[in-house]
Design a protein around this nucleic acid. Structure first.
Lengths: 221, 221
DNA sequence: CGGAATCTTGATTACCTTCAAACAGGGTGG
DNA sequence: CCACCCTGTTTGAAGGTAATCAAGATTCCG
């Protein structure tokens, strides 16, 4: 719903994985910078997909809400990641800022027009969707595993963002639970278990130190 | 691994949803007809993705096998469906014939070359991947629901193929279980439950009559 | 008809959820 | 500066759902 831009300084900034602000390599495309406050909605389910977004800093969650109120988080996006690109004219999920977020937006229609003429851009569009597909399938594989395997797998993924052996988790335990298809209690208990086995350690509830990544990878199975 | 073609007459043939044998509307592309016996492997995980396939008759399952031997079925494909198209040069999953299957194959490289020059084909390629993505996400949503909801949802999907109120399920109970992330016993028990509540009925273990589709939709939640 | 594979049913167990309460951290106002 | 509150997280106890283990029943095919 394109909330008013409220620029806030994030408490922690992830290392930027992609230096270029260009979306899909189309450097010449006009892009609009924008900021969202924590918990602001970037777009809602079934809204027209007017823009495509690239995260510059902060973290975003993309999710759906089931009829019974359960929320399923499909993915988290961090600096350098592109999200909100749909083939369908409407967004099929909603996106919210987990932490204060700064992004750039490119008009979907413009991107589509370029894809019509530029095979390179068309291919990047396809590649992006293919990567999302691979992620969605890996995610589906996760959801049939045990709680320990799910949490371990999530932590291994997060480990990619380690700086000096620790990360600030931008998302709440509830977010993790909704991503893994577990309850917040099970996530909490499993994290406590991993601490007891010295695989990880929490400086604060959000700052995690990975002590034994291999143990997590083994659990990931 | 491109098993030798063993043409067999399927016991039951699904109505053909797409009349044209063309893949992605590229009518001029050379396609090779082929048949696979029940349980034959069409391609394996990590094999080079040399071809793209379109089902003419029969049913196909696409799956991955986890390290611990568990199998996760990602999708079933029926007459008219295209499968095996990857952005990556290798197949990320394997495909097997559930029933005797006849297909046509188009070289992936040829298709890619055409997509370079024909924006229409490039768009269809993207659209196809986007549809697969949507399916994968819906599938992921399924996997966090209860057994009854999963089975009901699966049956609702199958109901699209109803002819005179009944369908022949081409897949085994084990296939259904591996698709839904349940055990074969739970699938069997749930189907029995749905029979007791008169939502469905089984003429044979594979021929299902849908008595109350709305009940299934309600359970699907 | 006989044997093997598939499917169903039963009993028990294990894991995760639910319900409930305590704990920790951060911010505000007195 | 401390008391209080609010939110997020952790921990505990009990219960429920699906998995597991095991045995029958049915179907399919040679």
């Amino acid at each position: 719903m394109h909330m008013p831009a409220t620029v806030r300084t994030p408490s922690y900034q992830y290392p930027q994985t992609a230096g270029s602000p260009a979306i899909f390599g189309a450097t010449e495309l006009p892009s609009v910078p924008m900021s969202f406050a924590k918990d602001a909605e970037i777009y809602g389910e079934n809204e027209p997909a007017e823009y495509v977004y690239k995260v510059l800093s902060g973290a975003v969650r993309v999710s759906k809400v089931l009829q019974d109120g359960r929320r399923q988080i499909e993915a988290f996006y961090f600096a350098g990641d592109v999200f909100g690109m749909e083939f369908s004219p409407d967004h099929l999920s909603s996106a919210e800022a987990i932490s204060p977020v700064s992004i750039i937006m490119v008009k979907r229609s413009t991107l589509l027009q370029h894809a019509e003429r530029d095979a390179q851009i068309a291919k990047q569009l396809w590649q992006h969707t293919a990567q999302e597909l691979e992620h969605a399938r890996r995610h589906a594989m996760l959801l049939v595993k045990t709680a320990q395997e799910r949490v371990a797998s999530f932590l291994v993924g997060i480990s990619a963002r380690l700086v000096n052996g620790s990360v600030e988790l931008p998302m709440s335990r509830q977010d993790i639970a909704d991503y893994l298809g577990l309850t917040i209690e099970t996530v909490s208990r499993t994290l406590t278990l991993f601490q007891k086995t010295s695989a990880i350690e929490f400086a604060t509830s959000r700052r995690m130190i990975v002590r034994n990544k291999q143990a997590l990878i083994n659990l990931d199975s």
